Simulated assay, not measured.
Amino acid sequence: MSRSVLITGGNRGIGLAIARRFADAGDRVAVTYRSGEPPEGLFAVRCDVTDSEQVDQAFKQVENQHGPVEVLIANAGITKDQLLMRMSEDDFTTVLDTNLTGAFRLAKRASRGMLRAKKGRVVLVSSAVALRGESGQANYAASKAGLVGFARSMARELGSRGITFNLVAPGLTETAMSEQLSEEQRENLKSQIPLGRLARPEEIAAAVAFLASDAASYITGAVVPVDGGAGMGH
């Protein structure tokens, strides 16, 4: 059956690949975007996940267009990489506000309809960095690691109401962000990945789609790494 699906940060990269995957499966897909242009062929609403009022308004628009959100994919995120001694407090808190507190705002708002329906799927996009750490990314790693504790707490809190919370932890992926790396940086990072290449956004989308499917109805509180083996053992 066609479901109402909301993907945040769905206008490019991993988020857009996830949106296309659900749309191709026949779901009613909505995406949020903060900047840039909305993607063609998808219902898009502008939303900054650091603003609770904007989050609420985005949900209202999606609910009016597609009905209550049944599947939430919290993908919106930012980076402000810097070594600790050079990282400002604003660099740290801004990343956490978007990546972690943003997911809290989204899940809290989505839970209204899911609790009434007594079912729902929430998938949070974490990162391999959350599990293994990375120099210069203390803020990003902390925000993405925080998602694990948040999702597992929600899995316990809302599991009895038929709502699952899971995470994917992508490794370095072929997106506009990774294209900003120098060739030397890319080769160095690839050397740390057992499969010897970066992920394709569609590979992340496949894992997200599985966790949101009926096939994963008995999976909750799980972290699924999609990182080519880079984070093994974490």
Results as ranks from 00 to 15, higher is better:
Lys118Ile: 11
Leu115Arg: 14
Asn11Met: 09
Met154Phe: 12
Glu63Ala: 10
Leu158Ser: 13
Ala207Glu: 01
Leu158Ile: 08
Gly149Phe: 12
Ala212Arg: 09
Pro201Arg: 03
Arg109Gly: 04
Arg21Ala: 13
Lys60Ser: 09
Val95Thr: 14
Thr8Ala: 02
Arg20Val: 02
Ser217Asp: 13
Asp27Glu: 04
Gln82Ser: 10
Gly77Asn: 04
Ala17Tyr: 03
Leu158Val: 08
Val45Ile: 12
Val123Ile: 15
Ser111Lys: 11
Ala30Ser: 13
Gly77Arg: 05
Thr50Phe: 07
Gly228Ile: 03
Gly77His: 03
Gly36Glu: 08
Val125Asn: 01
Gly102Cys: 07
Ala76Trp: 02
Arg186Asn: 03
Gly67Asp: 06
Val29Gln: 01
Gln61Trp: 06
Arg3Ala: 06
Met85Glu: 11
Val148Gln: 12
Ser153Tyr: 08
Asn99Met: 00
Phe22Trp: 00
Gly41Ser: 09
Gln137Ala: 12
Ser217His: 10
Lys119Asn: 15
Gly171Lys: 03
Ser178Thr: 14
Leu96Arg: 04
Val5Glu: 00
Phe59Cys: 02
Pro68Glu: 13
Ala110Pro: 05
Glu179Phe: 11
Pro38Ser: 10
Ala142Cys: 11
Ser213Met: 13
Val125His: 00
Ala110Lys: 06
Gly159Asn: 07
Gly171Ile: 05
Val45Lys: 04
Ala44Tyr: 04
Gln185Gly: 13
Asp227Lys: 03
Glu37Ala: 14
Asp81Tyr: 09
Val55Cys: 06
Val122Trp: 02
Gly10Thr: 05
Val226Leu: 01
Ile14Gln: 04
Ala128Trp: 02
Gly196Thr: 08
Val29Lys: 00
Thr94Arg: 15
Ala151Gln: 12
Leu195Trp: 06
Asn188Gln: 15
Glu89Met: 10
Asp90Phe: 08
Ser35His: 15
Val45Asp: 01
Gln65Ile: 03
Leu106His: 01
Leu195Lys: 10
Ser126Asn: 06
Ala230Thr: 10
Ala76Met: 09
Arg34Glu: 15
Lys144Trp: 11
Gly26Val: 00
Ala155His: 11
Val125Pro: 00
Ala207Arg: 00
Ala209Trp: 10
Tyr218Pro: 00
Gly136Ser: 10
Ala206Phe: 06
Gly36Val: 15
Ala207Phe: 00
Lys119Gly: 15
Leu83Pro: 06
Ile18Tyr: 00
Gly15Ala: 06
Met177Glu: 07
Arg152Lys: 15
Ala169His: 01
Arg116Met: 09
Ser4Pro: 06
Arg105Leu: 13
Asp56Met: 12
Gln185Phe: 03
Asp97Asn: 15
Arg161Gly: 07
Ala212Asp: 08
Leu96Lys: 03
Arg86Ile: 07
Asn11Tyr: 11
Ala128Ser: 14
Gln82Ala: 14
Leu100Glu: 03
Val122Thr: 08
Gly9His: 06
Arg46Thr: 11
Lys190Ser: 09
Val69Ser: 03
Gly229His: 00
Asp51Met: 04
Ser2Lys: 15
Ser182Met: 08
Met232Phe: 09
Leu6Pro: 04
Arg20Cys: 01
Lys119Thr: 13
Ala145Asp: 12
Ala30His: 01
Phe92Tyr: 14
Arg46Ile: 05
Val129Glu: 14
Leu195Tyr: 09
Phe104Val: 15
Gly9Asn: 05
Ala176Ser: 15
Val62Met: 05
Ser213Thr: 07
Gly41Phe: 11
Gln185Pro: 08
Val224Ala: 08
Ile163Glu: 05
Lys60Leu: 15
Phe59Trp: 00
Leu124Ile: 06
Arg12Pro: 04
Arg116Val: 14
Ala209Glu: 13
